[in-house]
Simulated scan of single mutants.
Amino acid sequence: MEETSDRAATEAEEVADRRRIRELLQNWVVWRDAGHWERFRTVWHPDGRMMATWFQGSGDEFIRVSQEGWAKGVSILHFLGGISIDLAGSRAVSQTKMTISQRGVVEGVSCDVVCTGRFYDFLEKRDGRWGIVLRQPIYEKDRLDPVTPGAVPQLDAALLARFPEGYRHLAYIQTRIGYTVKPDMPGLKGPEVEALYARGAAWLRGAPI
Rank of each mutant, 00 (worst) to 15 (best):
residue 167 Y to E: 02
residue 103 R to S: 12
residue 32 R to H: 11
residue 119 F to Q: 09
residue 25 L to H: 02
residue 172 Y to P: 08
residue 18 R to M: 07
residue 79 F to K: 14
residue 183 P to N: 05
residue 21 I to V: 06
residue 105 V to M: 13
residue 138 I to H: 03
residue 18 R to H: 08
residue 92 A to Q: 01
residue 182 K to G: 10
residue 54 W to E: 04
residue 119 F to T: 06
residue 61 E to K: 06
residue 159 L to N: 04
residue 101 S to H: 14
residue 6 D to Y: 13
residue 168 R to K: 11
residue 50 M to K: 13
residue 7 R to F: 12
residue 53 T to Q: 12
residue 49 R to Y: 11
residue 144 L to Q: 04
residue 194 E to F: 11
residue 135 R to L: 08
residue 5 S to H: 14
residue 55 F to A: 02
residue 161 A to V: 05
residue 77 L to V: 14
residue 69 G to T: 03
residue 6 D to V: 13
residue 164 P to A: 05
residue 108 G to L: 02
residue 184 D to F: 07
residue 43 V to M: 00
residue 181 V to M: 02
residue 166 G to S: 06
residue 75 S to Y: 15
residue 57 G to M: 03
residue 156 D to Q: 04
residue 48 G to L: 05
residue 102 Q to H: 14
residue 54 W to C: 05
residue 54 W to P: 05
residue 148 T to C: 12
residue 18 R to K: 12
residue 69 G to K: 07
residue 99 T to M: 14
residue 187 G to T: 03
residue 186 P to R: 03
residue 66 S to Y: 02
residue 155 L to G: 00
residue 19 R to Y: 15
residue 37 W to N: 08
residue 194 E to R: 11
residue 60 D to L: 09
residue 129 R to V: 10
residue 188 L to A: 15
residue 35 G to L: 02
residue 130 W to Q: 06
residue 191 P to G: 08
residue 111 C to T: 03
residue 92 A to M: 04
residue 178 G to L: 08
residue 95 Q to D: 12
residue 153 P to E: 02
residue 9 A to Y: 09
residue 49 R to A: 10
residue 8 A to T: 10
residue 70 W to L: 14
residue 48 G to E: 00
residue 188 L to D: 05
residue 199 R to H: 10
residue 196 L to S: 00
residue 52 A to L: 12
residue 5 S to D: 14
residue 126 R to C: 09
residue 56 Q to K: 14
residue 123 L to V: 00
residue 98 M to N: 02
residue 156 D to E: 07
residue 159 L to W: 01
residue 170 L to H: 08
residue 105 V to R: 12
residue 129 R to L: 09
residue 168 R to A: 02
residue 85 I to H: 01
residue 100 I to G: 05
residue 148 T to P: 10
residue 171 A to R: 01
residue 30 V to W: 12
residue 155 L to F: 05
residue 164 P to L: 01
residue 164 P to E: 01
residue 202 A to T: 06
residue 69 G to V: 02
residue 30 V to Y: 13
residue 6 D to W: 11
residue 57 G to V: 02
residue 10 T to I: 15
residue 198 A to F: 12
residue 134 L to K: 13
residue 138 I to L: 09
residue 15 V to S: 13
residue 187 G to S: 07
residue 25 L to E: 01
residue 135 R to S: 04
residue 113 V to L: 05
residue 189 K to Y: 14
residue 157 A to G: 11
residue 108 G to S: 06
residue 201 A to P: 05
residue 91 R to D: 01
residue 108 G to E: 07
residue 135 R to D: 07
residue 173 I to Y: 01
residue 56 Q to F: 12
residue 181 V to F: 03
residue 38 E to H: 11
residue 86 D to T: 09
residue 145 D to W: 09
residue 141 K to R: 15
residue 104 G to F: 06
residue 158 A to P: 09
